[in-house]
Simulated assay, not measured.
Amino acid sequence: MKRLLTIGFDADDTLWHNERFYRLTEARFAEFLADFAEAGHLTERLLQAEKRNLGKYGFGIKGFTLSMIETAIEVTDGQVPASTIRDILDAGREMLDHPVETLPYAHEALEALAGRYRLVMITKGDLFDQERKLAASGLGDYFDAVEIVSDKSRGTYQRIFAAQGEGPDHAMMIGNSLKSDVIPAIEAGSWGVFVPHDLTWAHEYADEPRTEPRFRKITHLGEIEAILEEIG
């Protein structure tokens, strides 16, 4: 049997830009509440709210927007103006309409791999928003399957690579998050390829598993062919 049969790709900040829109909205959020708290404090409180709410709202813009509203209520002791809540909701809606800009080599890499491997997009986030971005990206036809999940864990990759291939041992996961894309995939028995992005959400930080034999790191998707040749 061929050593590698299935390749999973993360979507946000691996195939297309995403975190930049969160950072821009965070800056606007700080402006909305400038009379109540300084920007650094707001960012810290917002991150705490996001982490606290992941189990209830999941990943994505809708949960982020609700966490902004919750933070605004907290830092103003319940005195946040209704107009500010409206501004936050408008900012969230604008995020849901943001344009999709693919990252360098995304099209070229997928085109080169399609047909040679079973390609699976594995992403967290809101179902409607992720489907919208995939359609707008022009990358959808390259994938044999799309998995939009609530979280990414060892069990997630074991399940997906068993259903979409010959199991984790014959699969690879490529993404910009060590915590979500790389480490749990390696724990499941797959190869994990780290493609760093300039902007990464603080919740996704983790140390590189450099001693793991199935860990690889590349600077952009154009280097994936060299990894595949090495693995064989």
Rank of each mutant, 00 (worst) to 15 (best):
M121R: 00
E166Q: 13
I174R: 12
T6D: 09
D12Y: 00
L113P: 04
L134W: 14
A11W: 03
T200Q: 13
A30P: 01
L46T: 05
K62S: 01
D126S: 10
D10Q: 00
T71W: 09
A106C: 12
K62H: 05
R23D: 09
P213G: 13
G140V: 07
I231T: 05
F128K: 07
K2G: 01
E108R: 01
D169V: 00
A226F: 02
Y105I: 00
L24H: 08
T102H: 14
L5R: 14
E230W: 06
G192R: 11
A109P: 06
L4E: 03
F128W: 07
G189M: 00
L178S: 12
Q79L: 05
T200K: 06
Y57W: 09
Y57P: 05
R216D: 02
K51W: 12
T219M: 11
E31D: 01
E26G: 01
A145P: 02
L134F: 11
F9Y: 07
T76N: 07
L89V: 15
D144P: 04
F215T: 08
H17L: 04
L89T: 12
L221D: 13
R210M: 11
D198N: 06
E101A: 04
Q48V: 14
A188Y: 04
I183G: 13
L33C: 10
I218E: 09
R214V: 04
E223S: 10
T156I: 11
F143D: 09
A91I: 00
I160D: 03
A37L: 12
D129Q: 08
F161H: 06
N53H: 14
L42G: 01
H220F: 02
M68E: 13
I85C: 04
T219S: 15
T25H: 00
H107L: 02
A145D: 05
L46F: 15
L54C: 11
Q130K: 09
T102D: 10
R45M: 15
P213C: 13
A114M: 08
K133Y: 13
A145T: 00
K133Q: 14
E70W: 12
S180W: 03
M68G: 11
G125T: 12
F194E: 03
I224S: 01
D151I: 00
Y57K: 00
P209N: 11
I73F: 14
E229L: 08
E208Q: 13
S67E: 00
K2R: 14
I174H: 12
R23V: 14
F161N: 08
I122R: 01
G8M: 08
E50A: 07
H107I: 01
P196L: 15
S67I: 11
D198F: 06
F194Y: 15
L15E: 03
I183Q: 11
G58L: 07
E204C: 10
M95D: 03
E74C: 03
V195R: 05
A109C: 11
G222H: 07
T84P: 05
T102I: 10
E108H: 01
I174S: 07
K56M: 09
P99W: 03
Q130I: 09
L110I: 08
A114G: 00
A39N: 05
E230P: 09
